[in-house]
Design a protein around this nucleic acid. Structure first.
Lengths: 330, 330
DNA sequence: TTGAAAGCGCTAACAA
DNA sequence: TTGTTAGCGCTTTCAA
């Protein structure tokens, strides 16, 4: 590939002059510069970012590690982050996790090797604490959606509050028997919604699951508790809706439904959801990371902790329950 | 960050010995090697891929450019390609296109600058032919799903054949009035299916659209033609299904439906689809690309052209139309 | 305004 | 088995 040296030969000037023409054009004579540019164009020169990065101590590259969880939101976030980084002249190295095959550590290694300027992670545990500690402080790290490490910057979503929003939306419409399938860290919002309205929390309707929900478990729960509404998280929501469709349960006529996390199918089917502000997330991630990179503060860094509030998108999956009588009739 | 030089000082040997310990361990004495490794571990050494790539002439990096079309299949492909590349010690630089903001050319530049060993593109035109021509032959290019450039390797899907599969599935079940919304390159399959069964092709039911379908257009078509079945492509499918849900049209009781391209929502809603073999695609892309990289054949390269056959996934969105009588009753 | 020279971290040919 | 040396393509002092 054509290098500065090749250009310099054809231009009859030194390599440094050619270099300056690209990286510091102001200090080189118009004429020389024009000549260099036209020769560069003619020879099809593209700067070698590898060499440049080696010399400078930044690579204009960010690494991101996407967990295997099949959440479309991650992809939206990925896309938006890449778009924003591109505008700011950063490249993105992407690595996906795969349980049992590619773990965080395996994903991290090539990224560190590539001497990225920053890394975006979604870790939900400190399993690789030792490895993380070894990553040079030069490489900035920001945690997205989770906060296992106190020492890094983080952008997280206030999921419990989001869940409260969802539960309250249902409560407000007269629902009392709301079946909950989700993570333990969010259930507090569900309980809070009941308490704030002065209703007893129906603990028997709370299913805290760390593993994906199955159609069987869901059907059983439906039969056992006769809920008027269902509130579930991401992957669980898919199982729930699929099971209900299979059983010809109409939404919202038979059962009302809110899904935590927006998705394509929820939009298509008119399911009310709790969504996350994509642009806000992107903005915070990129800003936080790049600010750290451009203004490196050695020594005691206080990690930035940004919390983002989810919001409710009302569609057509929640029915208004007028009275207790109505509820009994279900 | 700690370098080979740092290690060599602490180990009391030369930089080359340390280098060999990592890249060619067989030719360095056990003892020396062990010492080097333990010191490396202790000092937290991670090889600098930038420097290595500069010296060698490959970067173990592939670039991929994802079009803005909101097709989940691209993402699945992306994920699988990354997973496979990771296994083979390649990193992936991802760039998304954004109409009017980031075009192919803008996406390509940093990737070429990063001196990737190969590029995966989804171009559907030759708009950037001149720029492509300038990309050093050292960087291998493979086109995925489309084939605008004759001179590069390509992996494409036999979409017309896939469409024939879909149309025939409907025809077989007694449907004759199949509304088609899709791209012009696939419609031939639709026509072929009719012809093969000896039915006249209902040209009035064919809507060839290059722009996304709107709910209005779709509703009108439904009213005008009273189809018994609908056959649509990717994004059009979403509009179609959403419109039908909105109008309380039952699938398949009122109208049968097949969507070209599988998706999450299709799975959830039990929609019969034409799907693409993800693993086959991934395998071919990665193999084709890496083979080219590892066995560079200078001079007249005959581009590889791989065609992949889509397949039908039958779910529950196609109804059996027993007789003409049935059809009239619709 | 330009050039010469050193060096970023690594590899590889050559010599020892 | 190891060390010396040159060089990948670039930037950046320092000097001219």
């Amino acid at each position: 590939m054509v290098s500065l040296k090749d250009l310099s030969k054809r231009c009859g000037c030194s390599v440094s002059t050619v270099s300056r023409a690209f990286s510091n054009p102001d200090i080189v004579k118009e004429e020389t510069k024009h000549n260099i540019f036209s020769v560069a164009e003619e020879m099809g020169y593209t700067p070698n970012a590898l060499a440049r990065s080696l010399k400078n101590t930044h690579s204009q590259t960010i690494g991101i590690i996407i967990p295997s969880i099949d959440n479309l939101f991650y992809i939206e976030v990925l896309k938006n982050i890449e778009l924003e980084l591109h505008k700011r002249d950063y490249k993105l190295i992407v690595s996906f996790l795969q349980p049992g095959i590619i773990d965080e550590r395996a994903a991290l290694e090539p990224i560190v090797s590539a001497r990225v300027d920053g890394i975006i992670i979604f870790s939900d545990n400190r399993d690789n604490e030792r490895y993380f500690k070894r990553i040079d402080k030069q490489i900035r790290i920001v945690q997205l959606f989770t906060r296992p490490y106190d020492e890094y910057d983080s952008i997280v979503i206030r999921d419990a509050d989001g869940m409260e929003l969802a539960a309250d939306c249902l409560l407000k419409r007269g629902h009392r028997r709301i079946l909950y399938f989700g993570f333990s860290d969010r259930v507090e919002g569900y309980r809070r919604a009941y308490r704030k309205r002065g209703f007893p929390v129906p603990e028997e309707l709370i299913y805290i699951e760390d593993r994906p929900l199955t159609a069987e478990i869901f059907s059983e729960a439906l039969q056992d508790h006769h809920p008027t509404a269902v509130l579930t998280c991401s992957l669980n929501s898919q199982t729930a809706i699929q099971t209900m469709i299979g059983q010809k349960i109409r939404i919202p006529e038979d059962i009302s439904f809110i899904s935590y996390d927006d998705s394509n199918w929820a939009r298509i089917m008119g399911i009310t959801v709790i969504a996350h502000p994509l642009e806000t997330v992107t903005e915070h991630v990129v800003n936080t990371l790049l600010e750290r990179i451009h203004c490196p503060q050695e020594g005691g860094i206080t990690p930035v902790r940004i919390e983002i509030m989810p919001y409710l998108i009302e569609r057509k999956s929640v029915r208004y329950l007028h009275s207790q009588a109505d509820e009994t009739r279900e």
